[in-house]
């Protein structure tokens, strides 16, 4: 066997590929499910925190900033490990999926809160004043005038951050979630052949390449002209 043949046999082994493809496809759907749940919860919670923060209640804002900085500082894998391996000690055990979902949602929440907050504060003061001068109250001004502009401004960074964090779903393999990477690693250890990892990489590309391209499109589409 030449080196080249050995390489092909290791990474593009047709028999192994056929055997483990169904597992990888299952992992693919599981990754989509996990990512979807993370995006929904993380972005919603991040937006909620940013809205709360704009109420300007001092002690509440300190708390928000503390939580946000905490989850921005901790590596996501550490958060996952804490929730999965640490919580049972406190008498509360989470499934691997739940632990991964909660951890990455909290991390995404922290980053999106900062992004939404930056957007809200970037809306010029004149917008508030114009709306308030016509008799609109705080909440209508916030929701009808300020927030729509803030959301529009933050779409590009939000898209990028969301992509970056959903790629963290691969970390769920550490807590035995058979998403793409988990399924691929299981395949490798059963077949003693790395081909399932090749399949996994391809699955990630199939999943994230369109998302990255969409992100690019979003970025140009939302370039804001006044």
């Amino acid at each position: 066997m030449t080196n080249w043949d050995r390489f092909l046999d290791s990474f593009f082994n047709a028999r192994v590929a056929a055997e483990y493809l169904p597992k990888i496809v299952e992992g693919f759907w599981l990754t989509i499910l996990l990512a979807g749940c993370i995006i929904l919860a993380g972005v919603a919670a991040g937006l909620a925190l940013a809205v709360l923060r704009s109420l300007g209640i001092r002690p509440l804002n300190w708390l928000i900033i503390f939580v946000v900085d905490l989850f921005r500082a901790l590596p996501p894998l550490v958060v996952i490990a804490l929730l999965y391996f640490g919580l049972p000690a406190a008498g509360l055990s989470l499934s691997g999926f739940a632990a991964a979902w909660l951890s990455l949602s909290l991390v995404l929440m922290a980053f999106t809160e900062e992004i939404f907050w930056a957007g809200i504060t970037a809306v010029p003061k004149g917008q508030w004043e114009a709306a308030r001068s016509t008799g609109l109250g705080f909440f209508p001004t916030f929701s009808l005038v300020v927030l729509p502009q803030a959301l529009r401004m933050v779409v590009p960074p939000l898209t990028n951050r969301t992509i970056a964090i959903t790629k963290g779903t691969a970390l769920a393999s550490v807590v035995a979630v058979p998403e793409i990477l988990g399924a691929a690693q299981a395949g490798v250890s059963f077949s003693f052949n790395p081909t399932p990892l090749t399949l996994g990489a391809i699955a990630y590309l199939v999943l994230f390449l369109p998302v990255v391209i969409l992100g690019r499109w979003v970025e140009t589409r939302f370039a804001w002209k006044r």
């Binding site: 004043e129 114009a130 709306a131 001068s133 016509t134 008799g135 609109l136 209508p140 009808l144 005038v145």
Partner: peptide
């Protein structure tokens, strides 16, 4: 404030609404 109209140096129109939307907002919501 509805009895006191104000016009600003920087216009401060809402950029995400049409001219009509800008004018109609307070009529609807206030």
């Amino acid at each position: 404030r509805q009895r006191i109209g104000m016009v600003f140096q920087a216009f401060n129109l809402y950029p995400h609404m049409t001219a009509l939307g800008n004018v109609a907002l307070a009529l609807r919501k206030v």
